[in-house]
Amino acid sequence: MLPSHNRFPYSAITDRPDFSWPGGKRLAVYVALCIEHFPYGSGLGLPYSPGLSHPNSYNWAWREYGNRVGGWRLIDLFDAHRLPLTVLLNTECYEHCPELVTALRRRGDEIVAHGRTNGEHQNGMSLEEERRLIAEATEAIRLHEGKPPAGWMSPGAHPSANTEDLLAEAGYRYTLDWPIDDQPVWMRTTGGPLLSVPYPHEVNDVPMVVLHDGTAPAFADMAIDNFDEMLRQSKDQPLAYGITIHSFIVGQPFRIKQFRRVLEHLDAHRDEIWFATAGQIADHFAGLMPPPATTAPASP
């Protein structure tokens, strides 16, 4: 037997109970916007100029553009299309760029905990170090938003083997760390059931643009093609489609121009789909499909 995470069993999407999203819709769509902050002089985070020693002003400044400019342009874009955002927030942004977070709060967007900074990863931390990271990020959001976050996405998409247990222990309802499915999936943890909400590992500007050198038009084409095919497939099974963008990547002007095509295309199908946040998707699914008995606490 190969080693297993023991979080969930295999399940074919063709063998599951049928359900619908609100209004009888079959495809739920959400856009995750990553708002991140990085320590100056650190080697962690996406490298625009890999191999150069630190401090590296060029690399830090590339990512900082999203907080100063790109994030604001994307807010304007989503305002124009009357679409919600799921904001994956490094809580260091509350101190670094509070005006940007305030603007997202005023829109009513969902705030998902994305750790303290993408300059650190949980994998490799001790159990107590990771518990403290989750507690600090959770408390920062509770303090500023008036309630704790329901969802979590690990910095750098790099959770540890303990993350899901610690999230359930801290009261989280769902995670975006497992891009395994086009429907939510219940996971086992030592703290009880935790829902995995579909998260895009392909329709995501980090792998497409930064890692694979994809162009702005190609990223927009990918997002549109993925939507069209999932809308077709959703006639047979209800599905959830996520798109992930970063303020310093799609927030660049030439990429915003192309990404506007994506939102225009979604707009044209507004009557057929449910525009939602990741948290709304989690809540609706959990209300229809409670965790099965097999999501009893996992062994420590």
Score class of each variant (00 low, 15 high):
R7W: 07
F8A: 14
Y10N: 12
D15Q: 15
F19D: 00
W21E: 08
G24I: 11
V31S: 01
C34V: 11
I35T: 05
I35N: 00
I35E: 02
E36F: 08
P39A: 09
G41E: 02
L46F: 08
P47G: 12
P47V: 04
S53A: 10
H54E: 07
N59T: 12
A61S: 08
W62D: 15
E64R: 12
N67W: 00
N67V: 08
V69A: 09
V69Q: 01
H81Y: 01
H81I: 00
P84K: 03
V87S: 05
L88N: 07
L89R: 05
C93D: 13
Y94M: 09
Y94V: 08
A103R: 05
R105E: 14
R105D: 08
R107H: 09
G115K: 02
G119I: 04
Q122M: 05
M125K: 15
S126D: 00
E129T: 14
E130D: 12
L133P: 11
L133Q: 10
T138Q: 11
H144N: 02
E145C: 03
E145W: 11
E145A: 15
G146W: 01
K147I: 07
P148M: 13
A150N: 04
W152S: 10
S154C: 13
P155Y: 00
A157P: 12
T163P: 05
E164A: 13
L167I: 03
A170S: 10
G171I: 12
T175R: 04
L176G: 04
W178G: 04
W178I: 11
W178R: 07
P184T: 12
W186D: 13
M187D: 10
T189G: 10
P193W: 04
P193Y: 13
L195S: 06
V197S: 04
P198R: 03
P198K: 10
P198F: 09
Y199E: 05
V203H: 00
V203A: 13
D205L: 11
P207Q: 05
V210S: 05
V210K: 13
L211N: 08
A216P: 09
A216V: 05
P217F: 08
D225F: 14
S234A: 11
D236S: 15
P238S: 11
L239W: 01
F248H: 14
V250T: 09
P253K: 03
P253L: 15
R255D: 05
I256P: 02
Q258A: 14
Q258L: 01
L266K: 02
A268G: 15
D271Q: 09
E272M: 12
F275C: 07
A276E: 00
D283S: 13
H284A: 07
F285A: 15
A286D: 14
A293M: 11
A296K: 14
A296N: 15
P297N: 13
S299K: 02
S299N: 10
